[in-house]
Computed example of a mutant assay.
Amino acid sequence: MPESSKSPPAASAPDHSPNHALKHAEDVATFRHDLRNALAPALLCADVLGTHTDPSVRQNARTIVTALENALKLLKKSTSSR
């Protein structure tokens, strides 16, 4: 049968088993950990820029730090609410 004439696979029922839930929780925890690790260098660089002599650079650094800290708070909040 030609590839284009194959019907799509039948949809299966969602897996609500304890093993599936555990795997999902582990995947979410890994994602959060990886995202925190990805944000850390940006926060470090923004902290360094916060010591710049140019006031506009310092202001932009504060804006970046605030945005990154808010993102990290959201991650922490979503972690603790589970």
Results as ranks from 00 to 15, higher is better:
P2H: 05
P2N: 08
E3D: 14
S5P: 01
S7F: 10
P8F: 07
P8R: 11
A11V: 02
S12R: 04
S12C: 08
A13E: 04
A13T: 06
P14M: 04
P14N: 06
D15I: 05
D15H: 03
D15N: 11
D15A: 09
H16R: 11
P18S: 10
H20C: 06
H20A: 14
L22K: 14
L22F: 02
K23F: 00
K23R: 03
H24S: 13
A25M: 00
A25P: 00
E26T: 02
D27W: 04
T30G: 06
T30K: 01
R32T: 03
R32C: 03
R32W: 02
R32G: 01
H33T: 08
H33C: 04
D34V: 04
L35N: 08
L35M: 12
R36M: 13
N37Y: 09
N37H: 14
N37P: 05
L39Q: 04
L39K: 00
P41H: 10
L43D: 00
L44R: 07
C45M: 10
C45Y: 04
C45T: 09
A46F: 00
A46M: 02
D47K: 14
D47P: 02
D47I: 05
V48G: 07
V48P: 03
V48W: 01
G50Y: 00
G50F: 01
G50M: 09
T53D: 08
D54R: 14
D54L: 12
D54Q: 13
P55Q: 08
P55T: 10
P55R: 03
V57A: 12
V57W: 13
R58H: 12
Q59P: 04
Q59R: 15
Q59L: 14
Q59W: 10
N60V: 08
N60K: 08
A61M: 11
R62P: 02
I64E: 03
I64P: 00
T66G: 05
T66C: 03
A67K: 11
A67D: 12
A67N: 13
L68E: 03
L68H: 05
E69G: 09
N70V: 06
A71C: 12
K73R: 14
L74Q: 07
L74K: 02
L74M: 07
L75T: 05
L75W: 02
L75Y: 06
K76F: 10
K77S: 05
K77F: 04
K77I: 05
S78I: 03
S78P: 00
S78V: 03
S78L: 07
T79V: 05
S80A: 06
S80E: 15
S81D: 12
S81E: 14
S81W: 00
R82K: 06
